[in-house]
């Protein structure tokens, strides 16, 4: 493993020196590969493929999507960090980029990649059943304070962003929930509707049909701004719990060390794709918020999140 990484590094260096002068001038001249960290399907895949097809139009060379799922995306992201920094390989990076090292799934973090742009953001929605006694977040917190561990919170899996969302809320308000991990967000919602748990913290899209049917109540979204999917629901800060922001986000990154002019061209094409109407349409249909951030800002945000998770995850008791 270590030898491989060393070899890859040497190769990458050689390639950089070799390619820097000759190719970057007329970049791109051949097909570009975009590495996706998730299995075909799902939100990450669709997001990355939509951007890939728009970048293809912009740069005029084929952009091929390759899925390398595994270890919450850590396999793909560390693979990406080991590729030649020539602009011909970039990848999708989700919120897990800031989590996997702390979770122990792989040795990769925001500092191992050159972040190009953030694309989307999906906030966690604090949701209870409509027939529950809690109509505001304060009701829920009061109940939870009086009955520690009585509120069972379903999440999309141990160490998933929705698990951490519930954990962050727990810490910020000083209550104790019982965390019940499910295999994905939808089974958790079904379990909420069936009355097997009291609350979920998942994305607004997951609970939208039940919300429209009047079966659940969303008490707050854990973001700085309200979600366009459920604009009537207040943010946590609005209901008196400031400073807790947990959302699933995603963006694009390249291996470190790509030549500045190549990077500019690639980042520019990606930025255009993210801000296009086609992308907005795709995001709306999947319940995501387009949240473009340029590279430096995205890198700073990812680092900030990395530090937050490094503190939160061990506190949740899921770190090895």
């Amino acid at each position: 493993m270590r030898i491989h990484r060393g070899l890859a590094l040497v190769l990458a260096l050689v390639m950089t020196v070799f390619l820097a002068g000759s190719v970057s001038a007329q970049y791109p001249t051949r097909q570009i590969t975009v590495v996706i960290q998730a299995a075909p399907g799902g939100v990450s895949d669709i997001t990355a493929r939509t951007v890939a097809s728009l970048v293809e139009k912009e740069l005029g060379v084929p952009v091929i999507a390759v899925n390398r799922p595994g270890a919450a995306g850590a396999l793909a992201m560390s693979y990406l960090s080991r590729q030649a920094p020539d602009g011909y390989t970039f990848g999708y990076v989700p919120v897990e980029l800031s989590m996997v090292r702390t979770l122990g799934y792989g040795d990769v973090g925001p500092d191992n990649l050159d972040l190009l742009a953030q694309a989307v953001s999906v906030p966690a929605a604090v949701t209870v059943r409509a027939d529950s006694p809690w109509t505001t977040l304060q009701d829920l917190i009061d109940y939870a304070k009086a009955n520690p561990g009585k509120i069972r919170v379903g999440n999309a899996g141990p160490g998933s962003i929705w698990h951490i969302a519930a954990g962050a809320l727990e810490r910020a308000t000083g209550v104790r929930f019982t965390h019940v991990p499910f295999d994905g967000a939808s089974p958790a919602v079904a379990s909420l509707l069936g009355g097997h748990i009291e609350m979920v913290t998942v994305s607004p899209t997951e609970i939208l049909p039940a919300l429209q049917a009047g079966e659940v109540r969303v008490l707050a979204v854990m973001d700085r701004e309200r979600s366009p999917v459920i604009p009537d629901v207040p943010t946590l800060a609005e209901v008196g719990v400031p400073g807790v922001v947990v959302s699933g986000w995603g963006g694009f990154a390249a291996p470190k060390g790509i030549p500045a002019d190549v990077r500019a061209k690639l980042a520019d094409a990606i930025a255009k794709a993210i801000q296009s109407p086609e992308f907005a349409e795709m995001a709306a249909s999947r319940g995501m918020t387009v949240a473009y951030k340029p590279g430096e800002e995205f890198a700073a945000f990812a680092q900030e999140q990395y530090e937050m998770f490094a503190e939160l995850i061990p506190a949740l008791g899921i770190v090895q």
Binding site: A71, S78, G157, G317, Q320
Partner: peptide, 20 residues
Amino acid sequence: GLDPMLSYPRFTFGRFELLD
């Protein structure tokens, strides 16, 4: 792979590829 409740890696011998 990762255990479903605590995300503890079981029988993976430290290999990330085996986490799933």
